[in-house]
Simulated assay, not measured.
Amino acid sequence: MPSRATIREVAQLAGVSPSTVSRVLNGTDANHMRPETKARVLQAIRELDYTPVKAARSLRKQRTQVIAVLLPDISNPFFSLLARGVESVAFTEGYSTLICDSNHSVEKESRYLDILLAEGVEGIVFTPVGKPDMERIERLLRRGARIVVADRRVEGLPTVEADNLGGSRKLTEYVIGLGYRRIAYIAGPKEVSTAQDRLLGFQEAMDEAGLAPVLVRHGDFTYESGYEHAQEILQNYHVDAIMCANDLMAVGALNIAFEKGRSVPAEVGVTGFDCAWYTEVVRPTLTTVEVPAYEIGKEATKVLFNVQICNKQLPVRVIPGGTCMPRR
């Protein structure tokens, strides 16, 4: 492998000192250098195909120009889209983005926080699995890292999230308005604020309509948990609708309904939440709530770079689909 050109070699070819080359690279040459000198340095850089070593520049500046996005499940299209929103803003700011997947594991999440501390990232867009390790969070903050929570809430940290409670209320009101009455609900993890808000919105709308849920089960936002809980519901309870706290669980519920020969939506309605891309691919199309995952990622990163201590809530909207229909 050919050796990488050094800043000293660039300086020698241009007939200047290494510090002069450094000023050109860092953009600090204005009013301190003759145009012909800068031109010689730029020509030498092109001839030698010189690329600065970012790690060395980071050591000098005490800045890495790297942020991280720490997510619970990168295979979930919602979080993939959120990560793209983060990367789009970071890239325009001249930053690299590390993507870390905790895979719904609090232990793995804590380990990643240690790794990001060691890597010296300047900021983290963070979607915690549940209640995060605040000691590790405080350690990162003391080192100067900025942390913004996306899609969920952590007390004391700035947050960008969707109107999960309001969206869940509207979706439940829509389902009730179609004539569904015997409704089961598959919620998300108890310790996750997003799941708490969506469950509360469902309960408030049911109470207002004078209805009680057939039952509530807590999943973990995965396809498997939706499939397993819906299987129990369909085997043991008489329901005319299963509402799920996210789309992955809803697709799990939809598939077990088909396997058991239950017609959707004629016999049982199914709803999700998030409006991931595949909700228009499944048949029937999924009734859900559109959550702006990409915008959440973008807004969280803007807060990160602007060092704003604020909380933002983005609007959502109900997306009618083929998995629910008016009841006679």
Score class of each variant (00 low, 15 high):
Q12N: 13
R217A: 12
I124Y: 03
I296L: 15
D163V: 03
F79K: 03
N255L: 11
V66P: 02
S75C: 05
I99A: 01
S19Q: 13
H218K: 02
I147G: 05
I256E: 07
A145H: 07
K54I: 05
A209G: 09
E107V: 07
R46P: 02
R198G: 02
V282S: 13
R40E: 15
E161C: 11
V66G: 01
G219L: 05
G167D: 12
F91T: 12
S193A: 10
D29R: 05
S168E: 12
V281E: 11
M325C: 10
L157F: 08
K170Y: 00
V149Y: 15
V270N: 03
K312G: 01
E173W: 06
A241V: 01
A209Y: 04
N255C: 04
A230Y: 07
L42W: 06
G201E: 14
K61Y: 04
R8F: 05
Y227C: 11
F305N: 03
A162H: 13
I233P: 02
V16P: 07
R152F: 06
L71F: 11
T222G: 06
G226F: 09
G261D: 08
F79V: 06
V289K: 14
L178K: 14
G177H: 09
I176E: 12
P18Y: 05
K108I: 10
D133L: 02
V10H: 03
A145L: 07
A44R: 05
G219Q: 07
V160W: 13
A90K: 05
R40I: 14
V307Y: 09
A56E: 01
I309D: 15
V10Y: 03
F221A: 08
A83N: 04
L98H: 08
R136H: 05
R46N: 14
